[in-house]
Nucleic acid binder design. Structure first.
Lengths: 333, 333
DNA sequence: GGCTTAGGCTGGACCGTTCCAACTGGGAGG
DNA sequence: CCTCCCAGTTGGAACGGTCCAGCCTAAGCC
């Protein structure tokens, strides 16, 4: 910067002003500085700037699992909004381990990020509380109690499964089973939505929750059990798309046609559901919108760090595809 | 840091030494400093450290497409190795646009990363050359001429399609078609491998390359054309898994059983291929190993920035699943 | 003509570290 | 007893920017 200043015949303060697009610089000096910078191949040092400004215009994003396409889309939304506002994203992952997640978070703080966005974190609540005290914090896709001074963004999973059940009822189905997602807050939410919707439709007696998991093996095994029973359901609501695909395999093994002999619904509207060969009716969460909302929440909180913790709930949508159809005549009840 | 020093009754230089685990500190002072730091909730400022040390122990990783699970696994390997060595990863994406990729790269340089890893970048060659001059650069999954002062890590795609063709020939197939991946260096490599393997087996006359793309629509359309022809192939090698899944849909529409009436092979051994419902024979690239190799290359180059550009080629493997089987008797030739 | 105002610019303190040359005190060696 | 050495420690100069108070000059106003 000093070399640029010398070459342009001005002070380094002025170079600094030009680099930051200050309006109170004459056109002549601006041009001279830019020319000198160009000639010297000068590139501003964001490290030094960060030190002097005491802020980095950087957001730390902690992702539970890089492989899950869900997160990729959330980051898309986040990145888009952040980029527009001149923020950079520092992405890290604890690769599914709480301990590593904590390390990554600490490293974000040491790097003095202006805020952190935690995507489905599994660290203990106390860690979240600690983070929220240090820096603007947004927690995504984690249900449970609010964390003081942190905002959270979640989807209404109960509403999601309710949509699915109502769609099936509209098609004439009554014996609708649910393949549970196992432990974890979102599996619980999804199950509650299913049960409530069934009860509201007067189908309490037909509620059937089969233990499973969020994996294809889990969905496969659960569907096996359902089909082996005396009165198999005419429709099944899987915990997520992956489990639904596992269930699909089981149906094939039994020679049943999905969408005709039995209707199947997934959850997440992932990439998988969209494949024509699979064509799965599924509940969609507005992922990139969630990313945008998270960034907005961050901005609001950095403007006013002491505001109350908020929870932003977004509504899921049902995407109907080929895996659901009318109740087969004469089947079950 | 000064406060910690005062509280511990030592100089800030000594605090600095303790924080960096220097061996030339007495146990007594070390303990006193750590105690004071603990009590004050002191957290080292990596920004200031980066400024003073003139290096950041940070690697900029530019990803072509966050959604592609291929990249997630490469990053896994990279992250593992980097973490072990005390490096952090700064991840960014140009979201498929060359112009944005350039911006992200420039931002990495302004942040003074110690190196950059470019995953399948689409920026112009001149940009790569420029980056390589500024900082240790590793280019991944991009074929083509070597870039001066940069190392590259690629898979041998020609060998990959060759493996696939040889597997099919071993099963008795002769009329083996290839669905091309469209433009781009890797589509070219894959096609060349196919053609060479066919020629080597004396099947030059049966070489058939159907234009397509790396998407499911592309695979679907190409398979339609192949099946509509007079002498449809008994085996098809798709450009990647996604195209193979599209082809699968076309087969279904024609009432053909995959693995029996026609054999199908994908490329990438993605998540999709592993789904039981799909069960696609596919060519696997050692993704996380590629990530580790990229980090090694970075380390070597930072130790010696002027070493010659190298190209590290890793060998693909064939993963056989249910979509390939013996040539149906009496079919085609 | 003198006073005020404002735009444009500057010098130097500061941000929180690392680095380096130099200092100290006690033990070993002659 | 003096010198040398070395482990342990220290003060102050970087690192490359931003920030702020203040300076200069020319224009505007009465």
């Amino acid at each position: 910067m000093v070399s640029v200043a010398e070459r342009a015949g001005v002070s380094k303060s002025l170079v600094s002003l030009v680099m930051r697009d200050s309006p109170r610089v004459s056109d002549a000096s601006r041009e001279a500085v830019l020319k000198a910078a160009q000639e010297l191949g000068y590139r501003p040092n964001l490290i030094a700037r960060g030190l002097a400004e005491k802020r980095t215009r950087t957001l730390g994003v902690l992702i539970f699992d890089l492989h899950n396409p869900f997160f990729a889309e959330v980051i898309d939304g986040l990145q888009e909004q952040a980029h527009e506002d001149g923020y950079r994203l520092l992405i890290g992952t604890g690769r599914g381990r709480a301990e590593e997640e904590e390390e990554v978070l600490e490293s974000f703080l040491q790097q003095r990020v202006d805020g952190v966005v935690l995507l489905s974190p599994i660290v203990e609540r106390s860690v979240l509380l600690g983070a929220a005290q240090e820096v603007s914090t947004v927690i995504m896709a984690r249900h449970g109690k609010l964390v003081a001074h942190a905002d959270s963004v979640v989807t209404d999973d109960q509403a999601g499964t309710r949509l699915a059940v109502e769609h099936l009822i509209g098609l004439g189905h009554e014996a609708i089973a649910h393949i549970d997602g196992g432990e974890g807050a979102s599996a619980l939410e999804r199950r509650l939505g299913y049960e409530a919707a069934m009860a509201d439709a007067g189908l309490t007696e037909l509620i059937r929750v089969e233990p499973g998991s969020f994996t294809d093996e889990g969905g496969h095994a659960a569907m096996q059990v359902l089909l082996a029973g005396e009165e198999p359901p005419t429709a099944v609501l899987a915990g997520n798309d992956l489990a639904a695909v596992g269930a699909l395999t089981a149906l094939e093994e039994h020679g049943l046609r999905v969408g005709e002999d039995l209707s199947l619904i997934g959850y997440d509207n992932s990439y998988l559901a969209r494949i024509p060969h699979i064509s799965l009716t599924s509940v969609a969460q507005p992922r990139s919108e969630m990313g945008r909302l998270a960034f907005d929440a961050f901005k609001r909180r950095s403007a006013n760090p002491n505001r109350r913790a908020t929870r932003i709930v977004v509504e899921p949508k049902l995407v109907v595809r080929g895996s659901t159809g009318p109740r087969p005549s004469g089947a079950g009840r």
